[in-house]
């Protein structure tokens, strides 16, 4: 057994390392051996999404530094995400900064609709991609999307499968299901409903016209995720919107108060350093 690299070579026969290995691999005084063609196992034990998790952590730090609430909105295509966002932005933009990132495979149509509602919006076109990832969101985060105490909505690509796996640095995923879809979608796409904190049941103004059993849908969703919060609303008629807006406001206040706690802790630590660092300075300041 080679004590230097543990490659399993036991015979002191004449052999040589490949160039790449020689660069950082020496056996002083001993025979050099060759394991360029000997298979060896490397244990990795690494999450496949480790890199996305790193980028998501970076985004999360940017948001935390500003006490921002960031929500990742996920749904099928056509659930009414953009209409909901337009109504939400108009209702909240005077209370605190509201910003939107829109993900679609093609076109900037959604971002244009949202900018028309008077809030900054950036479109990410994923091309053939079926989901947003933390790296792409990080690149989209220009100064117009970062504001102290603001709320950033990330409208993901319409897809109930792929976006479930990709943390973007958000505080929570909000899944939107409309009553024009099947009530059994929480069972058909369980990973997304399991990954979400809130489900918005949208287009309830259409309930008289469709065969959609709300209670059964809620039951299915809670089977997959017993902790899932559920709100029923219609972005078009405005019914139920108040509860959703309150949910966002509560989240925004929560992020901001956590931000204040962190700033106060930093301030207290800085004061402590000043006091321990020298009485002279302390007297002149106080």
């Amino acid at each position: 057994m080679c004590a230097t690299c543990g490659c399993g070579e036991s015979e002191p026969v004449a052999h040589s390392h490949s160039q790449a290995q020689d660069a950082n691999h020496h056996h002083p005084g001993g025979p050099v051996h060759d394991h360029a063609h000997e298979p060896r196992r490397i244990s990795l034990e690494q999450d496949i999404l480790a890199k996305n998790a790193e980028f998501a952590a970076g985004n999360r730090r940017l948001f935390a530094d500003r006490g921002m609430l960031v929500l990742n909105l996920v749904s099928s295509p056509g659930s009414g995400k953009t209409t909901l966002l337009v109504q939400t932005a108009q209702a909240l933009r005077d209370a605190f900064p509201v910003m939107v990132i829109g993900g679609d495979q093609q076109t900037a149509r959604d971002a244009e609709r949202i900018r028309a509602a008077g809030v900054p919006a950036v479109q990410i076109n994923t091309g053939k991609g079926c989901h947003l990832d933390a790296h792409g969101v990080g690149h989209a985060l220009d100064q117009s999307l970062l504001a102290e105490g603001g709320v950033l909505f990330i409208e993901n690509v319409g897809n109930l499968v792929c976006p479930a796996d990709f943390d973007l640095g958000e505080a929570a995923k909000v899944v939107i299901l409309s009553v024009t879809e099947g009530e059994d979608k929480p069972l058909k796409y369980p990973n997304m409903f399991a990954a979400s904190r809130l489900m918005l049941l949208n287009k309830i103004d259409l309930l008289p016209h469709v065969d959609f059993d709300v209670d059964r849908c809620v039951d299915y969703a809670r089977r997959v995720n017993p902790d899932l919060q559920i709100l029923r609303l219609s972005a078009r008629s405005g019914e139920g919107m108040a509860a959703w807006l309150d949910w966002v406001r509560a989240g925004q206040r929560n992020e901001l108060s956590q931000h204040i706690d962190r700033l106060e802790a930093d301030l207290a630590a800085a004061r402590a350093r000043l006091i321990h660092g020298g009485g002279e300075i302390r007297r002149t300041i106080i």
Binding site: H35, E38, P39, R40, R41, I42, L44, E45, L49, R223
Partner: peptide, 20 residues
Amino acid sequence: GYQWRLTGGNEMRIKELEVE
């Protein structure tokens, strides 16, 4: 009932490689 929490079964890990 459905009041259970997943403790395993959602892993996506690279465990090991064989290289030369």
